[in-house]
């Protein structure tokens, strides 16, 4: 095979790769339908934590609140609440909402999962 022919083949292959990537990334990318909550967008994630905080205002059940926050990832419930509180302060949440988040944060900072103290 001559050199010009080889170059043509390489160019054709590169065009094919470019077409394949365009199709696979842009035109028909893989769609996820059964995702876990830890990749929720920041505002959805903050709203979820706010809901947990609002529920905690009513039931004062730290165990349930921690369990609900645990679905958001491997970070500690206190860390999740802290980052949400920062988001809330930066994005104009109402004072009631921030108070609810602060109460939840206090609860999560002092929360000890059941069983740790009772081996």
């Amino acid at each position: 095979m001559t050199s010009p022919n080889l170059i043509k083949l390489v160019i054709a292959a590169l065009i094919g790769i470019a077409l394949g990537l365009t199709y696979g990334w842009v035109i028909d990318p893989i769609e996820y339908t059964d995702i876990p909550p830890n990749i929720l967008r920041d505002d959805y994630r903050a709203d979820y934590v706010l809901m947990v905080a609002e529920a905690y205002q009513s039931d004062a059940d730290a165990e349930t609140a921690a369990r609900r926050l645990a679905v958001l990832g491997s970070e500690s419930p206190a860390l999740i609440t802290t980052s949400t509180l920062e988001y809330a302060n930066a994005n104009g949440f109402t004072q009631d909402e921030i108070t609810a988040l602060q109460n939840l944060l206090t609860a999560m900072q002092t929360y000890q999962p059941q069983g740790i103290n009772n081996p």
């Binding site: 043509k8 390489v10 292959a13 790769i17 470019a18 394949g20 199709y23």
Partner: peptide
């Protein structure tokens, strides 16, 4: 040969992107 190279490239691109 050119078509074959194009198709191989396309296949590689899809495998990588999917």
């Amino acid at each position: 040969q050119l078509i074959l190279a194009l198709l191989i490239g396309l296949g590689l691109g899809l495998v990588y992107s999917w």
